[in-house]
Nucleic acid binder design. Sequence first.
DNA 1: CGGACTGAGCGTCAACACCT
DNA 2: AGGTGTTGACGCTCAGTCCG
Length: 360
Amino acid sequence: MSKCGRKKYIKTNLRQMTMETIDSQQDGSIPDSVAESESAHMQTQTGQNSIPTLAQVSVAGSGTGRGSPAVTLVQLPSGQTVHVQGVFQTPQPSVIQSPQIQAIQVATIAETDESAESERVIDFHKRREILSRRPSYRKILNELSSDVPGVPKIEEEKSEEEGTSPNIAAMALPTSIYQTSTGQYIAIAQGGTIQISNPGSDGVQGLQALTMTNSGAPPPGATIVQYAAQSADGTQQFFVPGSQVVVQDEETELAPSHMAATTGDMPTYQIRAPTTALPQGVMMAASPGSLHSPQQLAEEATRKRELRLMKNREAAKECRRRKKEYVKCLESRVAVLEVQNKKLIEELETLKDICSPKTD
DNA sequence: CGGACTGAGCGTCAACACCT
DNA sequence: AGGTGTTGACGCTCAGTCCG
């Protein structure tokens, strides 16, 4: 198998495993809508000591809620209904809580009824269809964390970001964030403060703040930063709101009337008026309404695309981070459940010993 | 030591979810 | 309906490991 092919194989298997985990880990936290409409089933095998009967668990009123008394009406195949005091005194919330799964059917490995079997297959496919796109990891984990104490919540806005833009996350919103062609991040706050961060630097060391003295409210349509890879004179340039140009100057010459000085060996920047001839490859951002020529339209489209790609790049990083966190959470949950399962089996054995009549 | 293998991470695309 | 966020899939790179 080729490298990529193998990778896909593993990925596919992982996905399937996840789906099966979903199939087998649903608890009683089921929305009412689906419960009324269809019978999505859950099958659990009772393991070593499984009893070969098929039990339809009818969810009886409020008694099935989380933390409610674990007395359940169980309908046996013979039609007999019995009240069952569950071993699970407190329903364990699943790591994956899909809101679509509704009714619970406890089946056993000895299930042989054909109609029930076909129903199960149909329901299995229904469930797969429903679960083909799970809620986001953030949602799943946050729901989980609200149910299970100790499970970390995924923050909406992480205070400490990993990845290439550790400095950006600490900036106060609303802030426009842009990335230059050299990988630097530029954030423009509404107050006119420009913050520049180097992705390679740690913490706030790479953060530079520039304050424009004449930065009032940015005019509409001029909030776009355009940047060039490097101009002919070796400076890096980009544009900021207010139709101004920020120029990274290698010679560290400052423009005292326009900006606060940066210190140390950090690069310095100048705010220049855009009226001067622009270097090749640099263009001013214009309001959408002022775009007329096809070239401008194409450039606007390119700019939008690059912005979209940049956002998606960051989103993908964040998504992967969440996914890793989610998988970790699943793994720890599995460990907990394994221990729990072991304990329950032991408890069952103990109860069997107690209840079974002694034969002399 | 060089090539094959493997796992992790990344960027991008596309499809879907969700919000306004 | 359109914009934006989210995530699976895909292809690629890179570093670490194994093996001849």
